Computed example of a mutant assay.
Amino acid sequence: MSSRRRKPDWLKMRPPSGRRFTEIKSVLRDRDLHTVCEEANCPNLGECWSGGSGPGDGPGTATFMLLGDRCSRGCNFCDVETGGMEPLDPDEPANVADAVAEIGLDYVVLTSVDRDDLADGGSRHFAETIRAIKRRDPSILVEVLIPDFGGDPDAIDRIIDADPDVIAHNVETVERLQWPVRDRRAGYQQTLDVLERIDRSSDIRTKTSVMLGLGEYDHEVYRTLRDLRGVGVDIVTLGQYLQPSRSHLDVFEYVHPDAFDTWARVAEEELGFLYCASGPMVRSSYKAGEFFVEALVRDGASVEEAREAAQAAD
């Protein structure tokens, strides 16, 4: 690996701090829960957990990571630990629902590690967590970011049947760069197939995420967005890849914010995505995207009104 590139000024981030950050961390620790925010060293952790600072600001948010804190796959962009798989915690669905209530969230994001060691990929456990949250408070919006479950249609259908409000599955990068970016058990076409099955089998909103700065060409990004829209994806996020450590893939380039703005316009105005969150610090779970979904699903807003709500929150 080569030496790290110096980050430009637009990638400066706020360190985690504040009373709300401490409260959320305490709730998670008390219930032995994991978040992708911490495990993957998300650059927005401080902003999301701390919430807003003014009257009417939200309570903060966290993306719960299910099925343990160790992944059966080894993607070269991800900082989650790999191997040493442990049994599932049968109390996790209830503990997550309790934590959501104690933190006071009305929009919950669930994701998970890959569990190729389990016959169902952990899909039953994932689905039960969705149901546990909804049983406690049906008004809570639940977004899930799922693995591909090895392309198993039964596992995907279990998630659909649990009736979350948004199902996301990330393509991560353009087709040419799937390897070495992703584990070889993942794949471009498999991701498209998962997203298409969700779109064809339900009315649930679908979402995916693409990282830039890995050496992709503009025409490859365009084709990826076109392919994603072609299988019915509603919402897409684009963000800058950041190297978690020297043992991970190098950053090929830091993409300028103006380029991200251009991709947002292309996605929404030309390709027809309902919403595109695009910027250097955007991640798959991103607060502006949550405001868009809340306005669209909970408030019954039009797409344009929901976009305005997301822009106001960004």
Rank of each mutant, 00 (worst) to 15 (best):
M1G: 14
R5M: 08
P8F: 07
H34S: 10
A40E: 08
N41R: 08
G46R: 00
C48P: 12
G56A: 04
G58A: 06
G58T: 05
G58K: 03
T61R: 02
M65Q: 12
G68V: 10
S72Y: 08
R73Y: 01
F77A: 02
F77P: 00
A97L: 06
E102A: 04
D114F: 08
D116M: 04
T129Q: 05
I130T: 10
R135K: 09
V144K: 02
I146V: 07
D152G: 11
P153D: 09
A155Q: 09
I156Y: 02
I160Y: 05
D163W: 00
H169P: 13
N170H: 01
E172N: 05
L177T: 00
D183F: 02
D183W: 00
T191P: 13
E196V: 14
I198G: 15
D199K: 12
S201E: 13
D203W: 04
V210Q: 08
E220H: 13
V221S: 09
L225I: 09
D234N: 06
Q240R: 04
S245K: 02
S247T: 11
L249N: 00
E253M: 11
V266Y: 01
A267V: 04
E268I: 12
E268L: 12
L271I: 12
S278T: 15
Y286G: 06
K287A: 15
F291Y: 03
V293F: 01
A295H: 09
L296F: 13
V297A: 06
R298W: 01
V303M: 05
E305V: 10
A310N: 05
Q311L: 06
A312R: 14
